[in-house]
Simulated scan of single mutants.
Amino acid sequence: MSSSSLPSSSPSKSALAVYGWDGGWEAEFARFAGQGLLPGRVVRVDRGLCDVVTAEGVVRADTEFVVPRDPMKVVCTGDWVAVDPEERDPRYVRSLLPRRTSFVRSTSSKRSEGQILAANVDHAVIAVSLAADLDLGRIERFLALAWESGAQPVVVLTKADLVPDAATTAHLVSDVETAAPGVQVLAVSAEQGHGIDVLGALLDGTSVLLGQSGAGKSTLANALLGADVMHVHAVRDVDGKGRHTTTTRNLLVLPTGGVLIDTPGLRGVGLFDAEAGVGQVFSEIEALAQECRFHDCAHDAEPGCAVLAALDDGTLPPRRLDSYRKLLRENQRLAARTDARLRDEMRRVWKMRGAQGRAAMEAKRGRLG
C-alpha cells in the first residue's frame, strides 16, 4: 500500500473521532498533553517507522524510543500513541497508550513469545473462502484467538458466488455456525456485492480482517471501502491458495463509519494464552462439563461424564470434542514453556492417568482370567 493511499488531509482534533478517539483516550493522554506531545493512532508500521494519524494529518515517526524487551509491547497498527509535534525533526513515538484489546498469536519459532497483530480492536472479521473445502478446525482456532483478544468475532464466508446454489450455501453456513456458537456467520460475494451492506452495518468501531492467503480479504476490504485501495492477486487454481497481497497491516476509514485493519494472510495461527478463548468457542462442552460427576473430569473414561454421555447419544459431534482437546493441549504446551509449576503439574497428571490406565488394564485382564 503506498503512502498516497493513506489519508492526506489535515483532520482537526475532533476528526480523530473517526479513528476511534473518545473521552477514555483523552483521559489516558492527559499526562502527555503538558509535554507538548500529540495524540495519534498508528495506521501502519514498517521496519521501525510508522504512519500516525494526528490532528495535523498523517505523520511519519520513528519507534526507537518505545522498542521494548517484551515483543508484546512493540508499536502495532491500531495503537494510540503520544508523538512528537511538528517542529521536532525527526519525530518519534514517545509512548503507547494502554491497549483496550489486542489480537495475539504465538510466533512460529519455538520460543514462548506472542506476536501482536492488531491493537484496540472491537470486531475480528475472520474471512474464509467458499472456493475451498471448509476447515472447521482452523475456523475454531481463529475464533479462540478472537475471543481471547476481547474482540467480537464475525465469520465471513467469501466467494459465495462460486457456490452452485443457495441451498448449498445455507448448508455451509449452518456447518460453520455449529463451530461458532454465539458468532454471526455471513456468506458474501464481494465480486457481486451480495452481503456487503449487511457486513458493513455490523462493523462499528475498529475491525480487523483476518484469514489465510487466498481467502479474498483484499477484495472484501475493497468492497467495504467502496474503492480499490488494496491490490488483489489471483488465486492459484492448483490448490486454491493465494499470494500475500497485503504485506503490512493498514488501518483504513470505512465509509459506513469505523475503521478497518487489513492484515497479511496468515499461514500459521498458533494459540497464545487462549484458554478462555477456547472455552468460549466450545461453550457447549464447557457447559456439559459442569454436569460431570467429578469436577476435574478429563472427559476420557470417567464414570458420570456428561461430555462422554453427549458424545454417545449424538448430541455432541466427535469432531468438536477432538478439536477442543487438541486446542487445549496446544495451549497448555505453550504455557508450560515458561511456567515450571505448570510443567510439573502436567507431568503429574500424565503419570496419574498412565497409572489409572494400567490399573484398568490389569482389572480387565483379571476379569477375563
Rank of each mutant, 00 (worst) to 15 (best):
I139L: 12
A55Q: 11
C297S: 06
I116Y: 03
A160H: 13
G40E: 12
R138S: 13
V349C: 13
L134A: 08
D322A: 15
T248D: 06
V58D: 11
G270Y: 08
L311R: 09
A55D: 07
R141W: 07
S323R: 08
L266F: 15
A151L: 07
A289V: 04
D313I: 13
A359M: 13
N222M: 08
D135H: 14
L288W: 01
L96P: 03
V176N: 00
P317Q: 10
L260R: 09
D70Y: 06
V307Y: 01
D300C: 10
T247C: 13
T178W: 11
G205E: 08
A124E: 03
A301H: 13
A274T: 08
Q290H: 15
D322R: 14
L117W: 09
L134R: 02
V185S: 04
R325D: 03
R44Y: 08
Q280L: 06
S95Y: 06
V75A: 14
A340Q: 14
L37S: 03
T315H: 04
V154P: 01
W21H: 05
G258D: 08
E148P: 06
D300K: 10
E113P: 05
L157Y: 10
S108V: 14
F32M: 02
L260V: 07
M361K: 08
P68S: 10
S108C: 07
D122F: 10
G258Q: 10
T158E: 06
